[in-house]
Design a protein around this nucleic acid. Structure first.
Lengths: 103, 103
DNA sequence: TAATTGGGTTACCCTGAGGTAAACTTCTTT
DNA sequence: AAAGAAGTTTACCTCAGGGTAACCCAATTA
């Protein structure tokens, strides 16, 4: 870790990007099933509204944390999966997951 | 932070605990100097008010992320350092730091 | 034709994390 | 006695992130 200024703190940046109210849960699910439909994800998270879940997903897309895949057909099928770059976080998130479970 | 059955996710817990507005920066400093005085820490973070910095430190204490050490003397000397458990996060935070720097 | 399904939007509201500014306390230095 | 230093507290305010509820659209099926 080499930063000194607020803006240059990669850790801050990472935590900002990963820690919305529902983002950790989304990540959790996406790390388990590499590809998941919107509606399925929503069913796994019954306490979020569609709107809020969509907001979180959109933000994560913008930040290249996840990808949206649209498959044509009916009913509409939209899948979400981890972005390539995000996979290298696997080990880190695993550590955090264990640590957080014991708190 | 209270958990509902649907939020029982160690990752969420971790990110909640680590990601206040100033906590990542505090962690950054504490990972570098294993022990730092309040006033010194504050000087390294000129944009926070004392009050807010204290709030963040107190929360981190409550969650056993850092420890507060009071040394008697004058002027008052209060040091903060990482809690033992937090040190095992080193590798994870390093990954996050690198990842966040490239975003 | 009416209901359903999956994905997404619109409009509005509310809470709490974080912000500012100032004061307090105890001891030291001038 | 006055000024400062370190750590902390008090009172008050602001705003954006998240919450609710309803609605939209296209295609399918009953």
């Amino acid at each position: 870790m080499k930063y000194t200024e607020f803006e240059q703190c990669g850790l801050k940046r990472s935590l900002d990007l990963l820690s919305g109210k529902w983002k950790p849960l989304i990540l959790h699910h996406l790390f388990h099933e590499k590809e998941i439909r919107f509606i399925e994800l929503w069913r796994k998270m019954p306490k979020v509204s569609k709107k809020v879940l969509l907001e979180q997903l959109h933000q994560m897309q913008e930040h290249h944390i996840i990808e949206r895949i649209e498959k044509n057909g009916f009913p509409p099928q939209v899948y979400y999966r981890l972005h390539r770059d995000t996979k290298e976080l696997g080990p880190a998130l695993q550590i955090l997951d264990r640590w957080g479970s014991s708190k």
